[in-house]
Design a protein around this nucleic acid. Structure first.
Lengths: 348, 348
DNA sequence: TTGAAAGCGCTACCAT
DNA sequence: ATGGTAGCGCTTTCAA
C-alpha cells in the first residue's frame, strides 16, 4: 500500500512530526511543543524559530497523539441524526454546531438513516474516537453501547426522541400539547371527522402526538373513528397513498392532521390533485408554509439544538446533577389550509 | 477537573483498556489484541475468554491509539459543507455518507456556515484528527491548509464549487448548461425581459449560472438589461426584497430566473403576494416544486455525493491519476409557473 | 499458539 | 529558558 506521494513537489510526503519541526528549528522536541502550544517559559526568538519551521514543513499537530496522551478528546462532539434529508434534523444540528463552535468545540455529524444498526455503528465510531460527548436523535429503543459509555463517564444528551433505557439529559418537544392545539384548532372550525396521517407507529414522538389527538377528541366528546387514524405511513410517499385512501373512503374526513413534516409533504401532494381538499394542518414547521398556505404546529429545531449542545457542554464541564428533561413549546400557525369552516357537518 | 465518575454503579470509571481486558482474561495484551481483531493464531477458547472479558468490562477499542500506531486513520472521512440548513447540501452529504458506509467508512460532517474562517478551522480539525480523506464544499477561494495537506498525501475531493488554487478531483454541475436551458425555456414562452436573482456575486457556481444566462440571451440576440440582473441577494430574505424591487420598477421583467434554491424561496414569498406574478424558474430542485407549481432546473445532489465519495474512495485506495473533473447534468422540469406565454411583449 | 519489547507522536514530570 | 525520559493504548516485530 504505497503512501500517496506528492506528484512532483520536492516536499516531504506524509505528515511531518513535532520531532521534525524541532530538528529543523534546532531545539528539543519539548521546546517545540511548548512553543507551538503557547506555553510559558519559551524565549520569543526560539518560539518564532519553531513556528517558522512548522510553517515551512506544513506541520499540523496530531490530535490522535495529543488526545491519547492527555486522555480523551476534549474538542470533538459526536452527533447522530436519523434523516440527513430532513430539514428538521438539519436545523437541530446546525444550531448545535454553532453553539459548540462558540465553546471552541467541533461537531462531527453522523447519520443513522433510521437504521438501528447503522446508528449503533455510528455511535460506536464516535465512541472509539473518544469524543468528549454525544448528541443523539435515536432511531432505537435499546442503546447497549451508550449505556456502558455513560457508565464510563461519557456525557450524552438525547434530542427529540426520549431514551427509555437510559438516564440521560433530554430535550424534547411538547408533542402532546402541540397535537392538542392542532386538533382544537380544527374543532374550532367545526370539523368533526378528523383524519390523522402518522409516521412509524413505534416512534415515541409519533405516539405522543397521536395520544394528544385522542385526548383532544375525547375532551371534545367526539367519538374516535379508528379508521381515520393511519399511523404507519413511514414516509412521504406512504403518507400520500394513505391520504388518497382516506379521501376515497365513503365517509372521508373533512380535516387532516399530519404528525410531522414528511407526512405533510405526502399530504400536500395528495391534496394538490383535488379541487376541494380537506383542511390540513401538520406538526413541524415548513419553510414555505405561508406560500403553500399550510397551517402548522411550529417548533424550533434550532432551539432544540442550542439547548442540547448547551446542556452537553455543562456535562463535559463536569456537571453531575441528575438527568434533566426539557420540553420545548410549540406554536400554532394557522394559514389558508384551515381557514374555512365546514359547510356541512358529519356526525354527533 | 474531576473525571465524571459513574453515579452509583460498581462499574469502573473511565474507558477500560486492552491491558485490563487482557488481565481479566488472564492472557497477554498481545493475545487480547489478536483475539479482538480476529487475527489468526488464537485458540478458539482463548478468543472466547477474551471476548467475554471485553464485554464484561464494556471495552471499546481506542481508535486514537490504534490509528496512531498504524499511522493515519483509515476509517473516517471528513466532509465540510457550507449551509447545514440547505436541503441541497444535505442531499450531498446523505448520499456521500451512504456510499462511504458501504465501504466501511464513517463520514464526519462539519459546517462552515459560509464563513471562510470557520471552514478553515473545521478542515484543520479534520486534518488534525488524521482523517483518511476530505470532501469539501468550499466557501473559500484560497485553501492554504488543504494545499499542504494534499502535498502530504491526504486525498481531497471538491464538490459543487470548484477549487481554483488546488489540483484536486472535482464534481460539479453543468451550471452554464442548466442556466441556458432555463433561459431558453423562458424565451420559448415569449419572454423577452428576464430578471435574475442571484446569490453571492463571488460564488463560482453563481457566476457560471449568470454567464449561462448571458450566453442564452446573447444567442437569442436579446439586449441585456443589466438592471434586471440582481447578483448579490445573499439569502432568501435578500432575494425577496430584490424581487420586490425589480417588480416595482417602471419596466419590470415578465419572467425571473433564480440561481439557487435559497433565492427561489425568497422569490416565492415575493410572488405569493401578487395577483399576477412573473413567470418563475430556478436552479436546484425543490421538494414541493410540483405542488407549488414551480419550474426548476433540477439536479441531483445525491448523485454528486455518491460520485464524490466514490472518487475519494479510489484515491484513498491509492489511485494517483491526475485530478479529474466531473460535470453532472441538469434537467429542465417545467411546471405552472412558466406555463403561460407572455400576452404583451416588451422590446426587440 | 502465545508473549516481551519497542515505538507511533505527543505531553507530563523532573532535571538542568 | 531548555531538555531528557517516561508513558498514553495500541500494534508490530521477533522470540519462545
Amino acid at each position: 500500500m504505497a503512501e500517496g506521494a506528492a506528484p512532483d513537489r520536492p516536499a516531504p510526503p506524509g505528515h511531518p512530526t513535532l520531532r521534525q519541526v524541532a530538528e529543523a528549528a534546532g531545539v528539543s522536541i519539548k521546546t517545540a511543543s511548548r512553543a507551538l502550544n503557547d506555553e510559558p517559559h519559551v524565549a520569543p526568538r526560539t518560539s518564532e524559530r519553531v513556528r517558522a519551521a512548522a510553517d515551512a514543513l506544513g506541520y499540523r499537530r496530531n490530535l490522535l497523539a495529543r488526545d491519547l496522551r492527555t486522555r480523551s478528546a476534549s474538542t470533538a462532539v459526536g452527533m447522530v441524526i436519523a434523516d440527513a434529508a430532513n430539514p428538521f434534523y438539519n436545523g437541530i444540528s446546525l444550531a448545535a454546531g454553532a453553539t459548540l463552535a462558540e465553546a471552541g468545540m467541533l461537531l462531527f455529524l453522523g447519520f443513522s438513516d433510521e437504521d438501528p444498526a447503522l446508528e449503533a455503528r455510528t455511535v460506536q465510531g464516535f465512541l472509539e474516537r473518544r469524543v468528549a460527548g454525544l448528541l443523539v436523535v435515536s432511531s432505537r429503543t435499546e442503546h447497549p453501547e451508550l449505556r456502558s459509555a455513560i457508565q464510563q463517564g461519557v456525557p450524552v444528551v438525547f434530542l427529540d426522541r426520549p431514551a427509555r433505557d437510559l438516564a440521560v439529559d433530554q430535550v424534547l418537544f411538547d408533542n402532546i400539547g402541540g397535537a392538542i392545539s392542532a386538533i382544537q384548532h380544527l374543532l374550532a372550525q367545526g370539523h368533526r371527522r378528523i383524519g390523522v396521517i402518522g409516521d412509524h407507529g413505534a416512534l415515541p414522538t409519533h405516539r405522543e402526538r397521536i395520544s394528544g389527538v385522542r385526548r383532544a377528541l375525547r375532551e371534545a366528546s367526539i367519538e374516535i373513528d379508528e379508521r381515520l387514524l393511519l399511523t404507519d405511513a413511514q414516509d412521504a410517499a406512504g403518507a400520500e397513498a394513505a391520504l388518497e385512501r382516506l379521501l376515497a373512503s365513503p365517509d372521508p374526513p373533512t380535516a387532516v392532521f399530519t404528525t410531522n413534516n414528511r407526512m405533510m409533504v405526502g399530504a400536500l401532494h395528495a391534496c394538490a390533485r383535488r379541487s376541494s381538499p380537506p383542511a390540513l394542518i401538520g406538526f413541524d414547521d415548513l419553510e414555505l408554509a405561508d406560500v403553500l398556505g399550510t397551517s402548522v404546529v411550529a417548533n424550533s429545531p434550532e432551539e432544540m439544538g442550542r439547548r442540547g449542545a448547551a446542556m452537553l457542554l455543562e456535562r463535559i464541564g463536569g456537571l453531575t446533577d441528575r438527568p434533566r428533561r426539557v420540553r420545548l413549546p410549540t406554536h400554532l400557525v394557522p394559514h389558508r389550509s384551515t381557514a374555512t369552516s365546514v359547510p356541512r357537518d358529519a356526525e354527533a
